[in-house]
Amino acid sequence: MARPVWSGTLSFGLLNIPVSLMSGERRTDISFRMLDARNNAPIKYERVNAETGEEVPWKEIVKAFEYDKGSYVVLEPEDIKSAAPESHDAVEVEGFVDANSIGPQYFEKPYVLVPAKKAEKGYVLLREALAQTGKIGIARVVIRTRESLCAVMPQGNALLLLMMRYPQELVDISEYNIPEGARGDYRISAKELEFSEQLIETMSTQWKPDDYQDEFRERLQKVIKERMKAHGVVKREEEEHEAAEGTTTNVVDFMSLLQQSIDRNKRTPAKKNVAAPPAKAPAKKTTARKATKAAPKKAPAKASRRKSA
């Protein structure tokens, strides 16, 4: 059974709905392992020092930012934690916008919000309110140590959480050579446009997702099955993992919380831009950064010949 990627609360105004974040996609790529052709043993990937050729243990590995070619600044764990947001257990909705006001390029990855036990009322309340108003919630969520922009929207009986890209992550299309101007500038006749529209009409159909399959994957799976029958396989037992149960909630007065949220928003000016990342206040104490300049390149010592597995 699928396990939650993240557990916490979905909050808007003063309402908090305990939820679990479940993956909304299923990767169907076929992955391969690299083997030694001499004895079919798996090949290991090891962490090797580029200068000495020796393997580096995990405890000796540090994170660094390469600010110039061959020049690094080493970051301590405290440095990274100081930049991380404080809230890790809430999807905090900062505002609601029209569902059709956001371009498709902003959406990245889907998740399904699943309510915890006894949290169904708040879940359905938000779902129905979004469906009636045609709005979607713009929020932030912290998964592991990264804060991401996301959208909360209704889809049938479910609430989806779609990971979003920040504007800084998108390429401005004006950087590319895109044809501009009217059709007359490209000598497109009215008859050509009419025929194109007729062709689109004749090819129009209903969207049926099941009609579209990954044909390459299906053909590759067929080849794999044939190889398995011809050469046999090695089986191994799979461990079963039980999904963690969500937290429960007490009965809450939704009308009171909604009224308080509305009153609070009337007194507080609306945010100018809910999608822009918040400015971080500089930390009072900064950990000393270690700036290291790469040593002149030496001829790398030959790595000792490793025993084959």
Rank of each mutant, 00 (worst) to 15 (best):
E25D: 07
Q132P: 00
Q132T: 13
K271D: 09
I200Q: 02
K208M: 11
S87I: 12
S31I: 08
A83C: 03
P42Q: 06
I224D: 00
I200V: 09
V141F: 02
A129C: 01
T145S: 11
K121Q: 09
K69I: 12
V152M: 04
L113W: 08
D253E: 06
K118D: 08
F96G: 04
E201L: 03
P300F: 07
E238K: 15
V91E: 03
R27K: 11
T249M: 14
V112Q: 07
A83H: 07
P209E: 08
E245H: 08
G232Y: 03
P300M: 09
Y45A: 06
S31Q: 07
A283W: 08
N157P: 10
I17H: 02
K307L: 11
S11Q: 14
A99W: 00
Q206K: 13
S101Y: 07
V19C: 04
M164R: 01
G122Y: 09
C150W: 05
E86N: 06
K266L: 14
F107N: 07
A50S: 12
A295C: 04
K235F: 01
W6G: 08
G134W: 02
R305L: 13
E238L: 15
D253S: 12
M34E: 14
T9S: 12
L170I: 11
K208T: 13
E215M: 14
C150S: 03
K229P: 02
S308T: 12
E175K: 13
K59Y: 13
